[in-house]
Nucleic acid binder design. Structure first.
Lengths: 136, 136
DNA sequence: TATTGTTATACTCTATAACTATA
DNA sequence: TATAGTTATAGAGTATAACAATA
């Protein structure tokens, strides 16, 4: 039999993950990009909007709309950087931290459920392989 | 350490695969959807445009533009189905078959190169896991 | 002059609903 | 009436270039 098509399989898996994440995010009133941005903030790998754009993969001009909405809901705050007033430092509010933490927990549970179809060894190998490939 | 985020890892892997496929497809003058459509035809899981839309995941109205271009280049042909003249049967021409086969070969080589970063056991487990997850 | 955040504009992609021709 | 293919239109998403404030 043919070797499976890596690109096709990966795309199908991603589509399934998104399909299962969507209801979780909808309950929280978040779009996918909102969640990615909040997760980047939670991971702590962002200070200014420029950093956040790089860390999240969101274009800096499109990041703005997401931040406007998130700030309007009190989930993040933007404050000028005293050291360089061109920068704006973005940070999670307590409410934002609570929301993204809750979403992440639900998503982890969903992922665990999805991966439970695999033997434990394959599951570990999958995670190892993904981490390795992405770190190239 | 935290368990890796499956959605994020999968998205990153897909982005890397697309990044590596793009130059191959550009050389062939194909867009990603063209390749997906031609691959579906090569796999033989499509007869009418409706079937092809379902098999490739392309919306039936957007499939049309791709088929127009592919037909214009002589890579596929559309002929009315004698049994039900509402249908159009899509098939690869000899040139189309040659082109998609060549692309697929190049993409397989690229995938093999990408996967060569993994130990053989993890590589096999990755492919097994992806197939299993997608088949749910 | 260069950079951060922002806005404006044009372009592409997508979703939806019609329309035709067949059945 | 229903379906396959097609076309048209409106909306969302995207890329690009400009702009204001600051360095």
């Amino acid at each position: 039999m043919d070797r499976p098509d890596l690109g096709k399989l990966t795309a199908q898996l991603l589509r399934e993950i998104i399909r299962r994440e969507t209801p979780i995010l909808e309950r929280a009133g978040l779009e996918m990009w909102d969640y990615v941005i909040l997760s980047s903030l939670l991971a702590g790998d962002a200070a200014t909007q420029r950093d956040l754009a790089a860390a999240s993969g969101r274009d800096k001009t499109r990041l703005i709309g997401n931040l406007d909405a998130l700030e309007g809901r009190g989930l993040v705050s933007r404050s000028p950087d005293p050291a360089d007033r061109r920068n704006k430092v973005v940070s999670l509010t307590a409410a934002g931290r609570r929301l993204v933490t809750a979403c992440r927990s639900d998503i982890r549970a969903m992922e665990g459920d999805l991966l439970s179809a695999l033997p434990a060894a394959d599951r570990a190998a999958l995670e190892r392989a993904l981490v390795r490939l992405v770190d190239l």
